[in-house]
Design a binder for these strands. Structure first.
Length: 550
RNA sequence: GCGCCCGUAGCUCAGUGGAUUAGAGCGUCCGGCUACGGACCGGAAGGUCGGGGGUUCGAAUCCCUCCGGGCGUACCA
């Protein structure tokens, strides 16, 4: 990346200036390059001189001293001092030509870095209770988790996508109970859904199917046996359904981890013991408490209820240990905003178990409100009025749904206007971007018919203002991907892709690609090819398709 | 009460590890098509960055405080 080259040059200048006493430095100021908003301010700008001038020296004088000591480079055309002491760099055309060549060559690794090489990351996301269909909220989680995983892979990390299934606690029991009641109803046996049970229509649908498949043989079974069967089959069916929903949505979890497996293997018990051995557990009122308040939590938390049943926290502790044993350097849990209260206890558990808490990361995704015909639809799983992800996908399609989930920062509540997202029109950014891609495909096809070859393109031909803007935007891809990965901010990539499509459209409008001028046509084709590759690559990181025609 | 998130253009939102004149999409208004896909392009109007204080040469960005909205505050997660 160019900024690496520029930083190196700047550091060399700083050292030189420090050595010959031109500037007094207590410590080397950090060199950061950023893109100026205004083109007149050059291609790249740094404020090192201002940072170095904190001691009171004149930043502009420092800036000049640094310029005088910059090593020569064929990348840099000129450097200017601006305003209070900014250094504005103008780069040589070679820089952009290099970008276009690399961007249009799939083997160049354009937009990829290896900063994550050797780092193993576990990304756990969605992990909704297996007691109902994946909801639209789950969809946002799926889109974000998948895009973040892709971003981490693009920056060289080894990623495992994981789904944790809470199949051992109270919720699954309530679900089984609710299913039993609905099953019995099929045979005219009245019953009542337990308080906090599952009222959703889908429970009735499933019960009806089970009634057909199993007949009435469970009607006369003991309640215990009936519930156990409902639990087993219900879980199996729900998991299959959830998996199908997620696959259809284009996300794939490599690992489906069952909470029950931790209890069966004794991992939960040994995690509790390990916490106890560390002196983090205390018996109180017949329950066993984890002393999380000593590790930054507001209060202590129950690990084992007085009934003897472990809480989720006990399983979660065992799960932390399990992940750690599997060799992950980083554990990312993508959680819903409603779980923020649990974060301190998880981090406390990690620390008590000897897992450095800085290795555990818990981004919180805010809620969604669905708007249809101007009316907000609120969701609640137990009341049964969730909007299933499948329903949303039926209505707006996978691409539009994903794109809109990835359009905003995670920590921002998202208003999802179904009518708006459904529009297959250029006003809808996802189609605007896809259209740009399809249009390039069409141009390339046309060029192929004319037997134009891009290999020997002379990029010096690209001097039009639109071409220049487009090349600069392509160059920005190399910073955008790692930046989005670092910040866990897929929306940065979404924005970028949109800007790229915009710059391409302007270029397309003003610069005819396939003309009688062979040299110019080849150069422009190469630029088209580069743009197409980057659009397709960015979209694939987001999990959105890049159609050849629409 | 306490904790977390949000408050930026009419609407939906970027930008928030300070830095040169605050952005996008939609909507509104004006202009441009015998087009390699017009599902487009160009331009305009529109903002005391929730209010107030502070730190700084410089704050949408950092600190304090207040207001408004959401969520959480269980031997549920």
């Amino acid at each position: 990346m160019v900024t690496d080259v520029l930083k190196e040059m700047m550091n060399a200048a700083l050292s030189a200036a420090a050595v010959d006493g031109a500037i007094a430095l207590e410590a080397m100021p950090p060199v950061e390059f950023e893109r100026p908003r205004k083109r007149e301010h050059g291609d790249w700008s740094t404020n090192v001189a201002l940072a170095a001038g904190r001691g009171g020296d004149n930043p502009r004088a420092i800036a000049q001293a640094l310029i005088d000591r910059l090593p020569p480079s064929d990348m840099v055309e000129s450097v200017e001092i601006a305003g209070p002491g900014f250094l504005n760099f103008r780069l040589a055309p070679k820089w952009l030509h290099d970008v276009v060549f690399r961007a249009s060559d799939p083997k160049s690794g354009f937009g990829r870095t290896d900063e994550g090489a050797g780092i193993k990351v576990n990304v756990e996301y969605v992990s909704a209770n297996p007691t109902g269909p994946i909801s639209v909220v789950g969809g946002r989680h799926a889109a974000v988790g998948d895009a973040l995983s892709n971003l981490l892979e693009a920056t060289g990390h080894e990623v495992v996508r994981e789904y944790y299934v809470n199949d051992a606690g109270r919720q699954i029991r309530l679900f089984a109970r609710s299913l039993s009641v609905r099953y019995l109803e099929q045979f005219g046996v009245p019953g009542e859904i337990p308080e906090d049970g599952y009222q959703g229509e889908y429970v009735i649908v499933l019960a009806r199917r089970l009634a057909e498949e199993l007949g009435d043989r469970l009607v006369h079974a003991s309640e215990e046996e009936r519930d156990a069967t409902m639990r087993r089959i219900g879980l199996e069916r729900m998991l299959a359904e959830m998996r199908a929903t997620l696959e259809r949505f284009g996300t794939h979890h490599q690992v489906w981890f069952l909470e029950s497996s931790l209890q069966e293997s004794g991992a939960t018990r040994s995690a509790i013991e390990k916490l106890g051995a560390g002196g983090w557990v205390e018996e109180r009122d017949g329950a066993r408490w984890f002393l999380s308040s000593r590790l930054g939590d507001d209060k202590d938390r129950v690990l084992v209820r007085s009934s003897g049943e472990p809480t989720y926290l006990a399983s979660d502790s065992a799960y932390l240990l399990d992940k750690s044993r599997r060799g992950f350097d980083r554990l990312i849990y993508i959680l819903g905003a409603g779980h923020h209260g649990t974060v301190p206890r998880w981090l406390a558990a990690a620390e008590a178990l000897g897992i450095d808490r800085s290795r555990v990361e818990m981004p919180l995704i805010q809620n969604i409100s669905l708007v249809r015909a101007g009316v907000t639809v609120r969701a609640s799983k137990r009341a049964g009025n969730v909007v299933p992800l499948d329903e949303l996908v039926d209505e707006v399609g996978v691409d539009a749904a994903r794109y809109n989930f990835l359009n905003r920062s995670l920590e921002s509540p998202l208003e999802f206007d179904i009518d708006l997202v459904k529009q297959q029109a250029p006003e809808n950014p996802v189609y605007y971007v896809q259209y740009a891609h399809a249009r390039i495909s069409s141009i390339l096809k046309k060029a192929e018919e004319k037997a134009l070859r891009v290999q020997d393109a002379e990029l010096g031909m690209l001097t039009h203002e639109r071409e220049d803007s487009l090349m600069r935007k392509l160059a920005a891809y190399e910073e955008t991907v790692p930046d989005a990965a670092h910040r866990r901010a897929p929306q940065r990539l979404t924005r970028y892709i949109e800007e790229l499509a915009t710059d391409f459209s302007a270029f397309y409008r003003d610069c005819k690609v396939v003309t009688d001028d062979q040299q110019l046509s080849k150069a422009r084709l190469r630029l088209c090819l580069a743009t197409k590759s980057v659009l397709a690559d960015g979209l694939s990181i987001l999990g959105v398709s890049a159609p050849e025609r629409m």
